[in-house]
Amino acid sequence: MSEAPRLPRAPSRPADGLGLRRAIPDRMLPSVVAAMAFLAALALAGAVGAHALATRWSGGAGAIVIVQVPEPLAAATPGAAGGAAAGTRIDAVQATLAGMPGIASRHLLDARELDQLLQPWLGGHGGAHADLLALPLPAVVQLRLQSGASLPPALPDALDRQAPGTLVEDSAAWSDRLLALTYSLQACAGLALLTVAAVAGWVVALATRAGIVRRRGAIELVHSLGATDSYVAQRFARRTGFLALVGGIIGALVALPVLAQLSRLAAPFSTGAAAGGAAGATPLAGTLPGVLVQVGGGGGGGLLPGLMLDALPLPLLVALPSLPLATGLIGWLTAQATVRAWLRRLP
C-alpha cells in the first residue's frame, strides 16, 4: 500500500504550528525590556553608590573627628587638665586626647598633608610650601573613633580652655545624617527596581497574551492533539524569555557608558581616591570630613586607565551582567504563568 517514500526536507526543529516568531514579534518586547533594563541599571547604580557611601561613613573605622588647633605653638593656658608638663597648645591638646578612651587612632597632619589639603584653594605645587609655612595655619588632628564610641560632650570645652579657639568637628552628626540619606536612597533604588521588574513582567504578560490570541487556533489544535500545558507554556516561555534576555542585554549595554561616566563623577565620594587625580584632595575635602582619611594616604594609583569598565565599582560590574539574566527570567516565568493560566480555560 506504499511506495518508497520521497522524503521532504528534515526539519531542524519539529514544526508544531505554534508560529511563535510571528505571534510574538521581535521588536516591541525587546525594546521595552531594554528600556526597563536601562532604568534598572540606573537604579542599581544608585543602590550601589548609596551602599558605598553608607559603608564609607559607617564602616569599620567608626566616625572621624577633626580637631583644629589655632596657633598650635603658642603656650597652653596654664592650670588646664594637661598639668604642669603641658607646653605648647598642640602638645596640651595631644596629651588630653591621648588620655581619652574610645579613640582608635590619632594623627597629626604634617605640613605636606596640610599643603595637599589646601592646594585646591591656594594653587601651585610643592613650591607653595614655603609660602604656606608663612601663613598662620592651625594644626589639624584627625581622630578615628572606635566603632560605637563617641566623644564625651565636655571635650570641646575642655580643649578650648587649654587652647582657646580649638574646634572639634565631630563627624558623627554628619555620618548619622548621611547614613539616613544613603539608606533612603537605597530604599528608593529598591522600590525603583521592584517597579521596573513589575512593569517588565506586565509587558511580557501583555505580549504573551497578544501572542496567544494571535495563535489561538493553533494552540487549541495542539491542545486537542494531546500537547501538555507544559509543552505549550515552554514554547512560549522560551520565545519571550529569549526576547527579554536580548532586551536586557541591549539595556545593560546602553547603560554601561552612562554608568561609567556617572561613577567617574562620583569616584571621589565612593572610593576617596579619584582614579586620575594625583592630588587626591578635592575642593570638597574641607567640607566632607570623611575624605580626609584618604589625604596623604594611599593616593590613587593602581587602576588601569582607559577601559570604562575600570570606572565601575565591583558590585555594579557584577550586577550589570545579571540584569539580562533577570529580564530573561522575568520573561520566562511570566510567559509560563500567563500561558498556563490561559490553558486552564480549556478542559
Binding site: 522524503l7 528534515a10 526539519p11 514544526a15 508544531d16 504550528g17 508560529g19 487556533g217 489544535l221 495542539v222
Partner: peptide, 26 residues
C-alpha cells in the same frame, strides 16, 4: 494549520508524541 505544509500538518500528532523523526518521516 495554514502555515504548515501538508506533511508537517499530518506529522503534528507524531511529533507532539515525540516519536523519532525518521519514523515520522517514513
Amino acid at each position: 494549520l495554514p502555515e504548515l505544509s501538508v506533511f508537517d500538518n499530518v506529522a503534528l500528532p507524531m511529533r507532539l508524541a515525540q516519536i523519532a523523526e525518521p519514523r515520522v518521516q517514513a
